[in-house]
Amino acid sequence: MGFKLLSKLLVYLTASIMAIASPLAFSVDSSGEYPTVSEIPVGEVRLYQIADGVWSHIATQSFDGAVYPSNGLIVRDGDELLLIDTAWGAKNTAALLAEIEKQIGLPVTRAVSTHFHDDRVGGVDVLRAAGVATYASPSTRRLAEVEGNEIPTHSLEGLSSSGDAVRFGPVELFYPGAAHSTDNLIVYVPSASVLYGGCAIYELSRTSAGNVADADLAEWPTSIERIQQHYPEAQFVIPGHGLPGGLDLLKHTTNVVKAHTNRSVVE
């Protein structure tokens, strides 16, 4: 069995187990497998329904001669939608809004960016022009300005110390501490036991640490421990890039980060 097929099978099995364990909360999309990078042309966006009122959005972007996937989250909030992270750029984010209108038909009224990198804030200006209120932590807003990236308009308070959590509509926002970046936030959907790890969490097929220019490698494993301790009931975990899975993604990420750190020390 090929690795790609095995990865998709694991996603399907995880979703099936969740649907059985929580039949009222989960209505997993039966329309197909989780979209992969090879299936999404740059400039297009796919939506994948995880649970009743919960979707991931998947886009792709060219970077350094390669094409990478990027995940975000959409959560229903009454007759409105909360968006977590842009679709990595203005063109993708405009396509995301169009796809949401086509498939869901509810307005996106608020959006949260989970850290300051372009795959999370690139497209904020498109959201703002569409009347979406954009939010991020003060740290993310400051770092985005320093980096020359787009800056969300509103500040999220109460997320300055490791372990801080605040309720934001249908989700809980959690600051686990520094990891992929010093400002990275985690998003949890309690009604569906869905954990969105953003770039602080890796997919299972990833074996290298990737972009760690703004990471705190020493603190990252401790931050992941905080996530595990705060959300032990999480059933569906979405990484910032690639295929979702279960809580095993947290341990896998820790292993990859520690291996990278150990290699760096040896070198």
Rank of each mutant, 00 (worst) to 15 (best):
M1D: 03
M1H: 03
F3K: 10
F3E: 06
K4Y: 05
K4E: 15
L6P: 07
L10K: 06
T14R: 06
T14Q: 07
T14Y: 15
A15D: 09
S16W: 07
S16G: 09
I17V: 05
M18W: 08
S22V: 11
S22E: 10
S22C: 14
L24C: 12
F26R: 09
F26W: 07
D29S: 09
S31V: 15
G32D: 09
Y34I: 14
P35T: 14
P35I: 08
T36I: 08
T36W: 07
V37P: 08
V37N: 07
E39S: 11
I40L: 15
I40R: 11
V42N: 15
G43N: 15
G43W: 07
E44V: 11
R46V: 13
Y48C: 11
Q49H: 14
I50L: 09
A51I: 14
D52Y: 06
W55P: 01
S56Y: 08
I58L: 11
A59I: 13
Y68I: 15
L73C: 02
V75F: 02
V75R: 03
R76Y: 11
G78A: 13
D79T: 14
D85M: 00
A87V: 01
G89H: 02
L96G: 02
L96C: 04
L97E: 02
L97T: 04
A98Q: 13
E99R: 14
I100A: 14
I100C: 02
E101L: 15
E101I: 12
K102Q: 08
K102R: 11
K102A: 14
Q103C: 15
T109E: 13
R110Y: 06
V112Q: 02
V112W: 03
S113R: 04
S113C: 09
F116Y: 10
D119C: 01
G123Q: 03
G123C: 03
V126I: 11
V126N: 06
R128D: 06
A129Y: 15
A129Q: 14
A129N: 07
A130V: 10
A130I: 15
A133N: 05
S137A: 13
S139G: 10
S139R: 08
R141S: 11
R141L: 13
L143G: 12
A144F: 02
V146C: 14
N149A: 10
E150C: 04
E150D: 13
P152R: 02
S155D: 12
L156Q: 04
E157Y: 09
L159G: 02
S161E: 14
G163T: 11
D164N: 14
R167P: 06
F168Y: 09
F168C: 03
G169M: 02
G169Y: 04
P170K: 07
V171A: 10
E172D: 07
A178L: 11
A178S: 08
D183Y: 03
N184H: 00
Y188D: 01
S191I: 07
S193D: 08
V194Q: 00
G197S: 02
G198S: 05
C199S: 01
Y202Q: 06
T207R: 09
G210P: 04
G210V: 05
G210I: 04
A213F: 15
A218I: 05
A218H: 09
P221F: 10
I224Q: 01
I224E: 02
R226T: 15
I227Y: 00
I227N: 04
Q228M: 13
F236D: 15
I238F: 07
G240A: 03
H241D: 01
P244Q: 06
G246V: 05
L247I: 05
L247Q: 06
H252A: 07
T254N: 15
V256E: 04
V257G: 01
V257N: 05
A259S: 13
R263W: 06
R263E: 09
R263K: 14
S264W: 10
S264A: 13
V265M: 04
V265E: 13
E267H: 15
